[in-house]
Design a protein around this nucleic acid. Structure first.
Lengths: 242, 242
DNA sequence: CGTCAAATTGACAAGGTTCAAGGACCGTGG
DNA sequence: CCACGGTCCTTGAACCTTGTCAATTTGACG
């Protein structure tokens, strides 16, 4: 509890935490470059775009605070959210010249970002970035499995568990609780459902005692149990090295 | 037609074509390394795994011939195919040490692969690999949109159009036609549907004159029109450079 | 000709959507 | 302090797309 509160005062902590989680061997050069980068921040308001599909990717960003979503909009207005972007996540990571964004990224809450240090700063930073990419990709595949083969109840549980895990890594969740800025409609757009149905399934989940969600406060009462019940398996992309 | 036939005799042609499509500026060093690599091939039988979820990734492969699928299997037997892997595609591309596979790759037809030359061979090859990764990622996002927001008819059309486009790049499709090795059940596992429903929708598509599919021969009668009708937009990850 | 996997069909059930309306919450301005 | 407006949540009933189960047919191949 005190640990959580202490962190809340340093807006850069979650991002730093995630990078260390990606590569515990992050070296001095990397940390120094990150600290410098984090002194120049920019904040984007809700609904504004951080990156636009079809446009050139001009900079690589590190999210310090707030939630965003990677979105694709169909011609007739249907909308699909690919994944959520949380503090510590990188945006526009790519290793070639003249890249074009293959999706739009839109701020859900106010989002604070800074330019991400170039990978050339240190091999340890480069490794962190590479692992970040692999993790993102694994999350995309988790999303595909959710949409393709899980029913509504399982989709919701699986997504909430993923968010809990990711927020835990950066110190923004503890004891199954975190601040949830998503509306039911946004959840629906991520899960390929309607907001009406998300609402109904949330009622059921509440009555089943699986979660408590009032206002922005969300608590999963028994994450491990729920995880087992829906047969979830967490993302892992690196072998533990001796 | 003669071009197609000529290619059929060189099993390495599709892969080489795709790499040139990814980076037209592929240099001599890259081509030489590829040619050497392609002399040592390995063939995997249908249903065998080319890579296994949770296991270390030990080598990077280039597919020369055949189709494979990136698959995730749930505890209760449900199966989701993330995407299909076609000639010219790379498997196990990643830029850090001790990577672990986040999904299983299983051969659908007999699949011939060779070890992919190391990226250090040439910057132009490295760029081709990087663009290949970005393209793969874009395809994963296309798959998410399909599963989340398209109905059964649209999903099938969109997937077939994607396959047509990708096979066209490597010279394995022309005039809307290609060899289709997938069973309806495999298509269903990719599209989050049941094989029964895929079958029904295919009947409709046939009766609507959208496609002809008998045996392995598949033809989309009016790809551009179909593409427009379902509001499809193709994958693009690099800006055209002057 | 027999065998096996794949495709096809029908009847029925279920999960999710649609449409429409009402209620709760929250910040704003008078 | 209260009224107002907007956004989000909640609920019901009818409807529709897709799934399930089970049987039959087709086609490739030895």
């Amino acid at each position: 509890m005190t640990a959580l509160r202490a962190q809340a005062h340093d807006p850069a902590a979650p991002a730093m935490r995630r990078l260390f989680a990606l590569n515990p061997a992050l070296d001095e050069a990397a940390v120094a470059a990150l600290r410098v980068a984090m002194t120049r921040t920019r904040t984007v308001r809700p609904h504004r775009e951080l990156m636009t599909e079809g446009r050139d990717i001009v900079e690589m960003l590190l999210v310090l605070d707030g939630w965003a979503a990677r979105v694709r909009q169909l011609a007739d207005g249907r909308r699909q959210i690919m994944n959520f972007i949380l503090p510590g996540d990188l945006i526009g990571l790519c290793d070639y010249d003249y890249p074009v964004a293959s999706s739009t990224i839109v701020a859900i809450t106010a989002v604070t970002v800074c330019a991400a240090p170039d990978r050339s700063v240190s091999p340890s930073l480069e490794r962190a970035y590479a692992i970040s990419r692999a993790t993102d990709e694994a999350h995309l595949m988790a999303q595909i499995t959710r949409l393709g083969r899980l029913n509504a109840h399982e989709r919701i549980a699986d997504l909430l568990l993923e968010l809990l895990e990711r927020l835990s890594v950066v110190g923004l969740a503890a004891g199954g609780c975190f601040q949830m800025p998503l509306t039911q409609e946004v959840v629906a757009d991520a899960l390929g459902l309607t907001s009406v149905h998300v609402n109904r399934m949330l009622q059921l989940a509440r009555r089943a005692g699986e979660l408590v969600w009032s206002g922005r406060d969300l608590m999963l009462t028994a994450p491990d149990e729920l995880s087992g019940a829906i047969g979830r398996n967490a993302v892992q992309v690196v072998r533990a090295v001796a």
